[in-house]
Amino acid sequence: MSVSTCPSRSALNRDEQHRDAQGLDAADRAIVLATQAGLPLVPDPWGAVGREVGMSGAEVLERMQAMQARGVVRRVAAVPNHYRLGYVANGMTVWDVDDAHVARLGREVAAIEGVSHCYRRPRHLPHWPYNLFAMLHGRSREEVERQAAVLCERLGEACRDHRILYSSRILKKTGLRLAGSRPGAAWTEPERRG
């Protein structure tokens, strides 16, 4: 990762060489942008990415391994789309849980089958009293409701109220994370409908 092994970086100006809050420098960010929508499916994907961003395949691989070691990259994986396999009911369940118990109960809820994400988030009273979020996935709303009943039982008296918010429409979904992430990035015009 030393600068001397990386001729491409001499082309970057001094401002771009600083690492951001996540420890990514300009070359790391170029790799993130080039790979976040997926790797090219070729025998040497790192070499192909390297040609795109002006680095050797070996350097791309080394930086990817380093980002994984730092936890910026969780894993390099085949990412399944469960919706296409029939998991069409997606229920965001939200729970108003006693603050004294939410950390322990959050860990328990996260381990229940069907829960893909589980987070503690702030309340905004009076409009939003819910502090625990658990995303449930099932093949029907009935299945999601059965999963929610299991959560409800686990939370017991520590839970004052809950809701299941089903998604009625996906209006935008992209795995892109850093695209257009420059400060002051421009608005894109909404697409006109015919």
């Binding site: 996540q22 997926g38 790797l39 910026v72 894993r75 789309n81 994370r177 850093l178």
Partner: peptide, 27 residues
Amino acid sequence: VISRLERLQSLGVLSRVGPVFDHARAG
């Protein structure tokens, strides 16, 4: 392996093959 992954991706069963970033650490 490559042709299987291409097919699974084109059917949409795989949304992609690539890095999964930790949102909290990638911005």
